[in-house]
Amino acid sequence: MRNFKKILKSVGAFLLAVCLLSAFFIACYLKGENFHYQDAREREALAGQVNFLSAGASYTLFGIRPDILDARMGVKSYNLAGTLLTLRGRYVLLEQELARNPVETVVLEVSPDTLLRQREEEGPKGDLPMLGRIERGSVRWRYFREAFSPAEWPEVYYDMTSKGIESALRLVTGSYRQENDIMRAGYYVNTKPDCEIPAADESAFHIQSLPEQVVEENVAWLEKTVELCQSWGAEVWLITVPQTEYYNNAYVNLDYYQQWFTEFAASHSLRYYNFNLAKDKLSLLPDQGCFYDDTHLNTRGGEVFTEMLAEVLENDRNGVDNSQRFYGSYEELTQMTVEWN
């Protein structure tokens, strides 16, 4: 018994110290000046003003410039996107922002990834930042309970504690309240140099195919998100952010998803624009110079694409027909643009 008490005393003291310090670090993370919390602070500061929201994963994070939309369309916009942001995460952020802003327009980014991603395989990476982006404790706790399985709790602990240590170090160095300059109204300014993108030539033409089976859970979340936006009276657009010509030429069955999204939009009275099929995409957004890697726009590309998006949305608002601006399918795109096809 004495043995056990001695062990209990030491192990108990160790665990207590670890818990207290962990709580301190996590508190620093949640209240401190970190990447995700700045996003939450900025949204809180803009509450009541935002009337245009965009939501998606990293394609949108790098692709849609709120400042350009604001200038072109006379709106007050915010980009809710995040790297690997799950559909659940998009829903929760939209739920929060729709409740406190007079949102008239919501642009939802969709792609084959949106329907194919499997949370169990992908792990918690896409959901982890949400714990920093949600300000209200009750909403954060609910998200934690619903989004993370018990097997993922160690990873959640690690993520929050290590980010908290960074926040605590900033507290010590006095840079606790410095704003980072890589986030602007949710848009991520990518400062890394562009990667080398392979040539979109014959050797890389139609060499891969995507699975043609959507994940039902993703479809359910997409439907729930559209219904949420529409219930708040917001007009919803579905868009696919452009990717490189190299990427689009590599996959043989992108039309499967093109058709899927077209039918989905029609059945929900939405408009869907796939900017990979824009007739001027190849000239305005060449692979070299506008893309960071084969699927993400760089800063220049984001600027050009946002202008294209603003133009299309304005045309829609003004009753101008946009259909001539786009090819009907990847097959048509290939016939019109690919020399060796």
Binding site: S10, A13, F14, A17, L21, Y158, T161, I165
Partner: peptide, 16 residues
């Protein structure tokens, strides 16, 4: 206890 707690957080922050 403090020394071992420090080791734990060094493992967490750098080692993981």
């Amino acid at each position: 206890i403090g020394i071992f707690v420090l080791l734990f957080f060094l493992i967490l922050y750098f080692g993981v």
